[in-house]
Amino acid sequence: MNNASGIVSYGYNVPRYRIRAEEIARVWGADGKRISKGLNVIEKSVPGIDEDTATISVEAARMALKRRGIDGKRVGAIFVGSESHPYAVKPTGTIVGEAICASPEFYCADLEFACKAGTAAMQIVHSMVMSGMIEYGLAIGADTSQAAPGDTLEYTASAGGAAFIFGKEGVIANLNTTASFTTDTPDFWRREGAHYPSHGGRFTGEPAYFKHTQGAARMLMEKIGTTPSDYDYAVFHQPNGKFPLEVGRMLGFEKKQLDTGLLSPLIGNTYSGASPLGLCAILDEAKEGQRIFMTSYGSGAGSDAFDFTVTGEIGKVDRKKTLREMIADCERVDYAIYSKMREKLRRD
């Protein structure tokens, strides 16, 4: 198995500010309790004024390197997936590369595929490690997503990111198989120069999220002959707290398999960070031999499915502090402060 590759380490970052769905509803004259319950989202993370996809990516990457004592120089590829790269033109990956001292010898490009750019990055660096092009590769999914004031998306569009180091040595979770299900489906988009995204309302559901997530999940399980009961944990893209539970049920997963990786009720939809952060929460508690199923979803549209097996190396990872602890250490802001932080106030 000398071409086997998997996750060697992982790191995450979730900004510490939160706004409650009910507070957003209050501003727009909506029934907050009903919306919060309907979406299964209590609150969402809000990036500080000094945080963006680059800072979240760097913090997550540094955590991943530090907890395995990996020198940044050994990272041969950096792919950052996001729909909110700080620059329209100028890569986020170069900022990360410099900040982890990987420069100058590494492969790099930024990815965008709505909420699944992070898992696409995982597939890319995984392939590069398997092929022997690189020793370690860094895949990041991170976002500080924006939603138009008053839009339904505003209840969930949040910020956070996860970083994974792929390699062949010291693998904590083998990536057994991955599969992608991709079509051209315009359910959600943002045109060049537009500040906020547009979406197709209920069209984002059945023909988009559900079709692609189930498509990729089934494709993968058929490919390797597994069933939901073969997995200890499952995590799906979580645009809210409802869709992943629903799609899990449709596929035959039980709620207890989904609970560990379900973070959207507490932090909202971190877009490219969403299913990767769920995977981090699972890795925080997973034990040797356990099997993890993950499927992302990116509007536009596509899903990437993954099958991981946790190895004994997981015991060597410093897991004293967990993602859920980071999420719990938060500070709530009201809509006015949120508007300032997210630069929604017009000043010109």
Partner: peptide, 20 residues
């Protein structure tokens, strides 16, 4: 130390990152 955005040269200029 943490890695943060320290400054930016307006909305069209360079974003300066650094330590906080």
């Amino acid at each position: 130390s943490v890695f943060r955005k320290v400054n930016e040269d307006g909305k069209e200029g360079i974003i300066s990152y650094g330590y906080k």
